[in-house]
Amino acid sequence: MSATAMIEPSRSEAGYNFAYLDEGTKRMIRRAILKAIAVPGYQVPFASREMPMPYGWGTGGVQVTAAVLGRADVLKVIDQGADDTTNAVSIRRFFARTSGVATTTRTTEATIIQTRHRIPETPLREGQVLVYQVPIPEPLRFLEPRETETRQLHALREYGAMHVKLYEDISRHGHIATTYAYPVEVAGRYVMDPSPTPKFDNPKMDDCPALQLFGAGRERRIYAVPPYTSVRSLDFEDHPFRVQQFDQPCALCGAEGVYLDEMLLDDAGRRMFVCSDTDHCEGRRADGHVGTGDAV
C-alpha cells in the first residue's frame, strides 16, 4: 500500500461506485481511450475487468461507457437498432441504477449511445459519443488466429491477406461475401473491424461528426474513430463497395434507404419488412409518415 489518499467515491446504489467501476479501473480505461483516439483504428490493449454481465453481452462497451459517462449525460442503449430488445433494456437499466443518469430512446437527445450491431439511421452530430460493443476486435483474426502474428501484420501495415480473402469471395460467388463486420481502413492506416454491424452502416462511419469508441471486453481491446475521420470500406476498382438494398420500404413508416428487419408472419411465407431502428421508425410515424402495413 502506498501513502496515497484513499478516494472515497460517491456511491449511487448499494455500495457500488458511480457507474459501477472503481476509479482506478476508470482511469486505466480512460488512458486507453485517449491512446485509441490518438491512433485511430489501432487496438489498444486494456485490463478489462470482470463485469456483472457475461462476456459477449457487451462488457467492453459497458466498460467504455462507464469510463466516459458523467452526471450530465443522457444515455441511449440499442441492440439490433432497437431500444426495447432485452439486452438493451438490461444495459440501460444497469447504468440508470448504478449512475442515475438520464436515459432516452431518442437518438437526437442522447449524448452517449451504446450500441450492438447497428448505427442509428438519424445522422449523429458533434458532441455525441457512439460506443460499440465488439466481440472480435481483430479484423485479421479469421485469417490468422495468432495475436502475435496479427500484431506484426498491423505494425507492418501488411493487409494483403485481407484483400486476397475478399477477392477469393468474388471469384467464387461473384460478390464479396462479407455482409457484416465488413473491414474498413481508418485514416489511411489501420484496417479495423467495425464490429458486427451490417455493411449497410459502414458509410455512416466515414467523416462522422460524432466520436466512435469501440470496446471489446473479452478480447481486452479498445479502439476509436475520432470525429471527421476517413473510414473506407475495403474494395476493388472492378468491385466497388456496395451496401445492401431492400426492395420495399418499411411497412410501418414507409421509410426507404434504411435497414429493415424481416418478420415472419405465418408458415405460408408471409413476411413483413420494418425498420430495425425503432426510434427512427417511431419518429417518422409521429411525424405522420405511414407505411402500407402490407405483408409481402
Binding site: I7, E8, E23, L34, L211, P227
Partner: peptide, 23 residues
C-alpha cells in the same frame, strides 16, 4: 487538497481532455 468531488471532477477533467484530443 485534491478534487473536491473525486469521482465527478475526475470524470469532467477526463471528458474535457477526451474531447480535446478527439477534436
Amino acid at each position: 487538497p485534491g478534487f473536491a468531488d473525486p469521482v465527478h471532477d475526475a470524470q469532467g477533467t477526463f471528458r474535457a481532455v477526451m474531447d480535446a484530443l478527439a477534436r
